[in-house]
């Protein structure tokens, strides 16, 4: 289970997030949508403990750990984060990269697990090639393997499908499905509403740093999400334009 309670984030004098509350039960995926600059990535980083909120709090309870509150390294062992950065070292091979993380996370039988994942993401043939020679799609596949390597029960996925071909998307779905079956909770950020919605149990729309819509995916269809965030994007655009006009310069 993961939850945010009235999370706000201020950078300088700008509020990037404003009192965002949400919770994702064990075994569910929350699809988080919103226009550019809505604060999705910031929220995800705060949830994954990579950034600290200015106000509010984040509660992370890995499935199977009861009511005991973990923190620090013990808690981070259960987090899986797939972001814009691959967190892979381009100078090392695919296998070396995964092996490093497997040891860092104390993954049992790490060699077997690494081979299994390389196979699963379709990079077994390239296991001994340096990552620097990989295409963008291959890097994203390897980053995917890195994310799921230690069987995390709290997943934070920022545009996981970007750069992936249809085949890669299928692999991703399989990995996410596996994690969900193991009662992991996930937050999935996507700008592609149709693709993201299909994978989600619940959906939320973030606009201008505020949560404007939240509910089960069965009740809120992709059209509604799409409409909501288009409306928000337009109103944000209007106010920006108005502000710029009043200050006599273009935004």
């Amino acid at each position: 289970m993961l939850a945010a309670g009235a999370v706000s984030k201020r950078i300088g004098s700008r509020w990037i997030l404003h009192r965002v509350s949400l919770s994702v039960p064990d075994g569910q995926v929350l699809g988080l949508f919103g226009p550019n600059g809505a604060g999705k990535t910031t929220l995800l980083r705060i949830l994954a403990l990579l950034a600290r909120p200015t106000e509010g709090q984040v509660v992370l309870r890995p499935a199977g750990h009861g009511e005991r509150l973990l923190e620090g390294p013990a808690l981070r062992a259960h987090l899986g984060f797939l972001g814009h950065e691959s967190y892979l070292d381009p100078r090392l091979t695919a296998r070396e990269n995964l092996s490093f993380y497997a040891r860092l996370y104390d993954v049992p039988q790490s060699d077997r697990r690494v081979d299994e994942l390389l196979d699963q993401v379709g990079l077994a043939l390239f296991a001994h090639e340096p990552v620097r020679t990989f295409s963008r799609g291959m890097v994203q596949r390897l980053a995917m393997a890195r994310t799921f390597l230690h069987r995390p029960s709290l997943l934070f996925l920022d545009e996981p499908l970007s750069g992936l071909d249809a085949q890669g998307a299928v692999v991703f779905e399989a990995l996410l499905g596996e994690a969900r079956a193991a009662r992991a909770s996930a937050v999935l950020v996507s700008h592609d509403v149709a693709a993201g919605w299909r994978l989600a149990d619940r959906v939320a729309v973030l606009a201008g740093g505020e949560l404007v819509l939240e509910g089960p995916a069965s009740e809120i269809g992709p059209d509604r999400v799409q409409a909501e965030y288009r409306a928000r994007a337009q109103s944000a655009e209007r106010s920006r334009a108005a502000w710029s006009a009043s200050h006599g310069r273009s935004a």
């Binding site: 300088g12 004098s13 502000w243």
Partner: peptide
């Protein structure tokens, strides 16, 4: 700092 905050509020209003 207060001026910067004010400008930000104007912009987002």
């Amino acid at each position: 700092a207060a001026v910067a905050a004010l400008r930000e509020r104007l912009r987002s209003a």
